[in-house]
Write a protein that binds this DNA or RNA. Structure first.
Lengths: 209, 209
DNA sequence: CGTTTTTGTCACCATGTGGTGACAATTAGG
DNA sequence: CCTAATTGTCACCACATGGTGACAAAAACG
């Protein structure tokens, strides 16, 4: 019985996509540090020389991967998520919830951000750039929407809460509890959000006796 | 002229210490990921076979390094730093300042915690263990000192602020600004502390109109 | 058809890695 | 002083890494 082994047609674009898919899986499974030319070729099931031919370099793969990746929320989505807030504090509360949800939804982003704490590769740099740009955009839009900045250090406030959310999201990949809070469950994060709400409200309501 | 090249006396304990010193420098310079048997032997200026003989394994070096390392604050020091606080919120404020100062004072700890986000080695595990134990100790002591826990989720509050401080301290090794705040300078951190104070005070004073 | 370019396969290189065995130099013990 | 254990040096192994050149199979093009 002659099984006509169907030969895959030669297609450069398809091969490139195969490589980009593979690097996503690789980052997810072994982290950014586990990515190498040999490992990537093995994971993609192609010859490593094709990586050099099509992307020139491993960094070239990173750049291509960064371009077509959905690593961060869009500013318009953040604005929509906070649209129904009557004032700045409530917008911040909704924004923090949105940010946390979007982060936890992107495990590859979390993996890259984890690597960001130790190394600085083209991928982390690309992600950093996107993040800074979107944050700046958001700040402008928010300032226009809520002109009354009540002498509160908004950058410090959002920086602190954002850092906390980022770090807890990153660490939740490998640990379940952080300082007595279950960062692996929906309930645990709801608990955090309630406290965040309290902190934000309290900060804005400092004119109390 | 015959220079009598003084031969270093053979001393196992001294060699072990040389290795442990070298691994500290190595972690500081290249991060935990940059540590290998060959690199360590090179840095220490000894033969790598001695590493295997004296510590059995690279993990053995990690364990020995973890044992004689000063990676975290002592509970008694934290208690002393917050002793003059009249109530829980003020104790928390002082505690956060103390924690941040002690963290930023230990670059090796920051390096290990950065690696902790991606890998899990005997060193990171050892550090994790110490941290959990001290935190638990502190919680007990604090609960005894301030019995009035006003229906506030203290673990969530300290977890969030602690996570923010940890992450900002870790990232401050490689970046200068985080979301509009200068995390590389004393002034930047003072700005963060002021906001943290506001957040804590506000959280505890939620009984406002 | 024939020719040229592209796609993919394979063998190979130098180098770095973790790890081990043999052996000389130096101690310590009797 | 002689012997036995310890400390340190060196050569070596198998393997994985990043990277390159040669070459056959397939397309594209005239």
């Amino acid at each position: 019985m002659v099984t006509k082994t169907t030969i895959a047609p030669r297609d450069r674009l398809k091969t490139e996509q195969t490589i980009l898919d593979a690097i996503g899986r690789l980052i997810l499974r072994d982290g950014l540090a586990g990515v190498g030319v040999n490992a990537l070729a093995r994971e993609a099931g192609i010859d490593k020389v094709l990586i050099y031919r099509y992307f020139g370099d491993l960094d070239g793969v990173y750049e291509a991967f960064a371009e077509r990746g959905d690593f961060w929320w869009q500013v318009e989505d953040m604005l929509a998520a906070t649209a129904e807030a009557p004032d700045l504090p409530n917008a911040l509360k909704l924004g923090m919830r949105f940010h946390a949800r979007e982060m936890r939804r992107r495990p590859v982003t979390l993996s890259v951000m984890a690597a960001e704490t130790t190394n600085r590769t083209p991928l982390t740099i690309a992600l950093e750039t996107v993040r800074e740009k979107r944050s700046l955009d958001l700040f402008e839009q928010m300032a226009a929407r809520y002109p009354d900045n009540r002498a509160i250090d908004i950058p410090a406030l959002t920086g602190l809460l954002g850092a906390a959310i980022d770090y807890l999201a990153i660490r939740s990949r490998s640990i379940k509890r952080y300082g007595g809070v279950d960062v692996g469950s929906h309930a645990g994060w709801e608990r955090l959000f309630k406290t965040i709400d309290l902190m934000i409200d309290g900060t804005f309501a400092d004119a109390c006796p």
